[in-house]
Nucleic acid binder design. Structure first.
Lengths: 110, 110
DNA sequence: TTTCGTTATATCTTTCAGGAAACAACGAAG
DNA sequence: CTTCGTTGTTTCCTGAAAGATATAACGAAA
């Protein structure tokens, strides 16, 4: 039995804007309120999480996250309403792509 | 302006069956009649080409390639009719996936 | 039985993406 | 003005993936 799989991503002018990994870290940021905690919760290095968010920022048409450095508790990173909307959009497209591909494969009944 | 992209692949019981890279080497084999020539025409190492074809063979429900070792000219590798059919199938699904995703992205008019 | 170019495989080397660790900058609160 | 945990950035290091290289096995044809 065959299984069909896919990776979907969206690119901007300067590289990748959104993909599965970036969605994952965005959701963790939404849950944790901080990039370092988000990285920790995913077992991901801070550097990797930061570089993912950096590429999101560089390619977004509007702000996705708001980062505050310093202050009580050290600061933090939160999502904008637009950011939350982008998560929803990506996950919907991704799911629909999977459904579409499953249907396609069935048509060829391997 | 955003661009949406995807990589599609098909898995069997023991790993990847078909993907873009495997389709590429299969098409080169069809054109060259030999795995080593196909690898050379793609600027790919023989080892990599061989390992791709090996994984295809391990996951295919029916023979995709026929390899002959020895003989006049050293032998060669050719595609079965089923193999040619699989190339067509994959490329059609892949193209339709791209079209589908382009439509999806348009619906969200970023 | 020699020759040939191929398939198939093992081994060694190199490259490079990612992780680990270290550190400066920040600014609100006490 | 000290403390705190975070953001942002650099440097170093390691391990896994890919490439380079070498070599055996093969069998039709001359």
């Amino acid at each position: 039995m065959y299984r069909i799989k896919s990776r979907v991503w969206i690119e901007g002018e300067d590289g990748v804007f959104l993909g599965e990994g970036r969605i994952k870290i965005l959701k963790a940021i939404a849950a944790e309120g901080s990039l370092s905690k988000a990285a920790k919760s995913l077992g991901m290095s801070y550097k990797k999480a930061w570089s993912l968010v950096d590429s999101i920022n560089k390619n977004a048409a509007a702000p996705i996250v708001v980062s505050n450095t310093g202050g009580n508790g050290g600061g933090g990173t939160t999502l904008t309403a637009y950011g939350l909307q982008m998560i929803q959009m990506f996950e919907q497209i991704n799911q629909q792509c999977w459904d579409f591909l499953d249907l396609q494969l069935k048509e060829y009944d391997l």
